[in-house]
């Protein structure tokens, strides 16, 4: 009976909720840790036991975006007073902001460029992988392809090798053709890596779109290409969105290839952030700030596509 629960069911239900909460707390702890560290003064970041109560400050973010050097001598009172608020923070932390000698402009750290590179490479490779994957999946789904199962297995097999294994040979090949440390090089790599995944996921989605949709369009005077764009694509959008989220996350978080293939021009954020550990004394607050910002795009992207991730909106107009 709906709504009526025996005491036993009540307890099962409470236990389940408790378990979910526990899991949630365990999973959110690292996020909390990063967030807290990103707003801590440097001297509180590595205390034992950890500092829980502190006055949050934004100096880690200021430091994240500026190039700094150790303060050798204290600035004069006058210099300190005339500096903008964020520069004072850096000085308070025992460092000074590096300026261009001629123009006096503040020199920025590499972070924003790396962040931009991450966006460029991830977005383009995701779009290309999902588009190519959808077309490939459509072909496999709708036409008789000789040895279809073997081809599909072959496509999947490109994911079976850990990418690190091919990283060195890829690096050598890329150097020969001049693709190392370029956006295009990383985009090709990530697209290739995500394509097999996109094909497999999209094949599942397209298989579920009834063939009759296109056949109806074909009979009604459309070419197959038109039928694909007008009828299949709108139906496949849900699947494409889900696939895009997964491809984007993979590309966005990719570390090994980015570390090996890029160093300055096209370096993405994942290899850049930890590289700051090694420059001088590690400032964990800056690293936490960089990591926190790095988490945001994936969260936004997934949030925007959340409706598409829930299946089932397109079903119901076909009777079986």
């Amino acid at each position: 009976m709906a709504g009526v629960r025996t005491p036993r069911e009540k307890w099962t239900n409470r236990t389940a909720i408790a378990a979910v909460f526990l899991a949630l707390i365990i999973m959110l702890t690292p996020i909390y840790w990063i967030t807290a560290t990103a707003f801590k003064p440097r001297n509180l970041a590595t205390t034992i036991p950890p500092t829980v109560f502190f006055t949050p400050e934004v100096s880690p973010f200021v430091k994240l975006f500026t190039k700094r050097s150790q303060l050798r001598e204290q600035p004069t009172q006058e210099e300190y007073e005339s500096a903008p608020w964020w520069e004072k923070m850096v000085v308070d932390g025992g460092e000074k902001v590096v300026r261009n000698r001629k123009t006096g402009e503040v020199r920025s750290s590499g972070y924003s460029d790396r962040f931009k590179n991450s966006l460029i490479v991830s977005i383009i490779s995701t779009v290309v992988a999902v588009c190519m994957g959808t077309l490939t999946a459509y072909g496999f789904s709708r036409f008789k392809v000789k040895g279809e199962d073997d081809w599909m297995f072959f496509i999947l097999s490109t994911r079976m090798l850990p990418p690190v294994v091919v990283a060195i040979p890829m690096f050598l090949m890329y150097r020969v053709v001049g693709l190392n440390d370029t956006h295009l090089g990383l985009i090709i790599l990530y697209t290739a890596f995500n394509l097999s995944f996109a094909v497999w996921i999209m094949k599942g989605f397209i298989d579920e779109i009834p063939k009759e949709y296109e056949e109806a369009a074909l009979v009604d005077g459309y070419t197959r290409m038109q039928a694909f764009f007008k009828v299949v694509l709108p139906e496949a959008l849900t699947g494409m969105a889900a696939t895009a989220v997964f491809c984007f996350i993979t590309a966005w978080n990719e570390y090994a290839f980015a570390l090996i293939m890029t160093n300055r021009n096209a370096q993405t954020a994942p290899p850049y952030i930890p590289s700051q550990v090694g420059s001088g004394l590690p400032d964990w607050t800056v690293i936490a700030a960089g990591t926190l910002l790095f988490l945001i795009p994936v969260a936004i992207f997934t949030f925007l596509l959340r409706n598409h991730l829930l299946r089932g909106m397109s079903f119901g107009a076909i009777r079986k």
Binding site: P210, E215, A216, L218, D220, G221, E235, A317
Partner: peptide
């Protein structure tokens, strides 16, 4: 000839109306 060029119409068992 392709289906599009035959000037016929087809009604499917599943109706196959475009849900979007």
């Amino acid at each position: 000839r392709k289906a599009a060029d035959r000037d016929i119409a087809f009604v499917f068992q599943s109706f196959s109306l475009y849900p979007h």
